[in-house]
């Protein structure tokens, strides 16, 4: 067609990104407890947003500065927010899935919380 091959590559990257966003949302619906939902949701949505903006760099080459800046912001903020969220959910003792096999954080967390609050 009239579009160049680079633009079509970019469009397919955006499509793959949107599929990842969809899969993340599907995981949010299907997973059994909070921690699994955090894991699927934020991982897949980070990759999906990354691929979307990266595809837009191919389609609109003159916008690359702001798009790269946005990608850096996403890669910096999204894992931090999921970490803080998971820690808060552990802290208020949200019930885990009943088939959970092992809780490695549990023993360390007790000691850690006690020690650090004494230090403050």
């Amino acid at each position: 067609m009239e579009n160049s091959i680079v633009e079509i590559i970019g469009a397919f990257l955006v499509l793959i990104g949107s599929v990842f966003l969809f899969l993340g949302a599907l995981g949010l619906v299907r997973m059994p407890d909070v921690f699994n939902r955090i894991q699927t949701g934020t991982k897949a949505s980070t990759l999906g947003t990354f691929l979307t903006f990266f595809g837009l760099v191919f389609i609109m080459p003159e916008w690359w500065g702001k798009l790269i800046l946005l990608i850096i912001f996403i890669l910096m903020t999204n894992p931090v927010s999921s970490h803080v969220l998971a820690r808060a959910a552990y802290c208020i003792k949200v019930p885990m899935f009943k088939k959970t096999v092992i809780d490695l954080y549990g023993k360390d967390a007790e000691k850690l919380f006690k020690k650090e609050t004494k230090n403050e």
Partner: peptide, 19 residues
């Protein structure tokens, strides 16, 4: 009286220094 806040994690602290 000093308030007994729950400590902030290392990751959030570092991220805030950058952000």
């Amino acid at each position: 009286t000093e308030r007994n806040l729950k400590y902030t994690s290392e990751i959030l602290n570092t991220a805030s220094q950058v952000l």
